[in-house]
Each structure stands twice: as structure tokens, then as C-alpha cells.
């Protein structure tokens, strides 16, 4: 298998004192070694990903998952090390980012698809498909800013997944849509994978990860702790979360203030989005949430769920 992504000693640092945007602050929450207000969101990341692999990124908030995806997408540049990405990338990161609020959905589809490199003819051919999948047919001439957040994400997902790029990056998009749409997204992602695409998936939902990914990367405080079968990454992550929770409980018993401060690391149960699984929670093998049930017509890829370690497709 020839590698499509090669990273060697990859690192990127941010400055702590100038948090101009929200996401920077998220990253800043990860406790990394700091020197002169500088901290490394990622460091010493060395990995190779082959064509057709499905990689799941595991780790708490602010540990570098999204930053790694952005580096691969080429929308951030590394400060250290080398990164080679062979072939184009379809980034499902900030899917709604490319859209302009004042333009209509129709104009936005043309613009965004064009920006991602589709030619006029290609867009014309795929236009109806994009609209159908996003279920925005009745709102084509509505300015994008009037769209509901669900519609925005649907349209974004729909446009980006129609790109022909061999590498697909998915960052927590699936958590936003409603159940029915999520099912459609699963279908689309399965199609992409069986079409030989390379997939990167960031999710806090273990079922989603298991469904698509065979290989797992566990990122903790900017370094790659586990690179192996998905189950290994998940197990290590769960163990870490459990240990931290215990520590926090102990700390909270002694000093309530410290316990509160540490809670920023991980989402508290109350903040959880509905339907999302908490990382620490075990999922029993036979258990499946109702939304994930396979519809009769939908095909399940072999090796999709229970066989970790085996290459996808």
C-alpha cells in the first residue's frame, strides 16, 4: 500500500496570549508545556496512512485532533517536521465555512464547489444530486443566512462529499444533523470508503468510530499516544479518562476549586449532546442505539465494525 499521507516529526505551536479566535482558545485548554506563552498543539507526530485506510482520531477536547486534520487539509501550516499529502483533500471541517450568508443556496453551491476545484460542467452535472441529498430543494433561492443550522450542515456535507478528492476528513459533523440525516451521512461515508477513499474521522462517538474506522490514533496533549487498531486507541483513551476522573474526584474532595478547574478538560455529563456517547462509557458488543440500526437496503461493509486491525475495503 503506497502511503497517501506521510508525516514526520510534525509539530505546530500556538501562542497562548493572543487568542483571537474561539478555536485557539479550545486548543489552549489542553495542558501542554509552555515556554514564553507558546505551546505545542501537536508535536512529534510521525505517521503514514495508506490509500483506502479509515482512521479514527480519539482524544479529549483540545488535544490536537482537529489541528491534525487542519494540517492534513492544508489550512494550517506546520512549524516543525514534514507533511506530505499525495492527492486532494475533501475537508468536512467547518463544513459551512465556505458559504456566504448573503448569497442564495444556489449561488453558494456554485461558489463552494468551484472553490473546491469542481469545473462548471461537473457542478452542473452534480447540482441536483447535491440539492437532493441536502434536502434543500425548496430553499434554493433563499439566502444562506436564513437557513437553519441543520440545513447549513446538510448542504455543506452534501457539497464536500461530492468532491472527487481521494482523502476525506470528517470532523464531528455527524453530531449536528438529525437522526435521519445522520443515517444518510453514514451511507454516503460508506460509499466513499468502498470507493477506495482514505478517511479520517474525528468523533467522540465510539459507535461512529467503530462503524467506519479500523485504525485508531489517540492524541493526548498534542502527542500521538497510540497508533494502532482502533480498539487499542479506544481502550487507552478510556483508561486515561477513568484515571483522570478518579484523580479529579480525589482532588474535588480535598479542594473544590481545583476540581472545577480541571473539569474543563472534558465535557461534563450535563453538556453532552443528546445521542452522543460519553467517551468513558463502555458499549456492549450487541448494543446499538436505535438511530444506528441498519436499514434493510443499506449495505454494511465487511470489516466495518467488529474486526479491528483489518484494512478497510
Amino acid at each position: 500500500m503506497s502511503p497517501v499521507i506521510e508525516a514526520e516529526g510534525l509539530g505546530i505551536s500556538f501562542r497562548r496570549n493572543r487568542a483571537r479566535n474561539q478555536r485557539l482558545r479550545d486548543v489552549a485548554r489542553g495542558r501542554t508545556t509552555s515556554r514564553k506563552g507558546e505551546f505545542w498543539a501537536l508535536r512529534d507526530i510521525t505517521l503514514q496512512v495508506g490509500a483506502g485506510e479509515a482512521v479514527g482520531l480519539v482524544g479529549g477536547n483540545g488535544q490536537g485532533k482537529s489541528t491534525l486534520l487542519k494540517l492534513i487539509a492544508g489550512v494550517l501550516l506546520p512549524d516543525e517536521g514534514r507533511l506530505k499529502v499525495h492527492g486532494g483533500v475533501a475537508p468536512l471541517i467547518e463544513v459551512t465555512g465556505g458559504f456566504v450568508g448573503d448569497l442564495t443556496a444556489r449561488d453558494n453551491i456554485w461558489l463552494t464547489a468551484g472553490l473546491h476545484g469542481l469545473s462548471r460542467r461537473q457542478i452542473a452535472r452534480r447540482f441536483d444530486e447535491i440539492v437532493d441529498f441536502a434536502e434543500v430543494g425548496d430553499f434554493l433561492d433563499t439566502p444562506f443566512r436564513h437557513f437553519s443550522s441543520g440545513m447549513k450542515v446538510r448542504l455543506g456535507f452534501s457539497v464536500v462529499t461530492t468532491l472527487d478528492e481521494p482523502i476525506v476528513l470528517v470532523d464531528e459533523v455527524l453530531a449536528v444533523g438529525d437522526r435521519a440525516f445522520r443515517e444518510k451521512c453514514y451511507g454516503r461515508m460508506s460509499d466513499l470508503l468502498s470507493g477506495g477513499r482514505t478517511l479520517f474521522l474525528v468523533s467522540h462517538n465510539e459507535a461512529d468510530l467503530r462503524r467506519f474506522c479500523t485504525r485508531g490514533l489517540y492524541l493526548k496533549a498534542g502527542s500521538l499516544v497510540v497508533d494502532g487498531p482502533l480498539e487499542d486507541a479506544l481502550t487507552t483513551y478510556r483508561a486515561d479518562v477513568g484515571r483522570r476522573r478518579k484523580k479529579r474526584k480525589a482532588a474535588a474532595a480535598q479542594d473544590p476549586a481545583t476540581g472545577e478547574a480541571q473539569a474543563g478538560e472534558q465535557r461534563r455529563p450535563g453538556e453532552q449532546r443528546p445521542g452522543e456517547q460519553q467517551p468513558g462509557e463502555q458499549q456492549r458488543p450487541g448494543e446499538q442505539r436505535p438511530g444506528e440500526q441498519q436499514r434493510p437496503g443499506e449495505q454494511q461493509r465487511p470489516g466495518e465494525q467488529q474486526r479491528p486491525g483489518e484494512p478497510a475495503g
Binding site: V75, E94, G98, L115
Partner: peptide
Amino acid sequence: AKLVRSTSL
């Protein structure tokens, strides 16, 4: 910024 951030142009 959003366009710049979401495309690798």
C-alpha cells in the same frame, strides 16, 4: 476568513 480556512487553495 472562513473561506480561507476551509479551502486549501
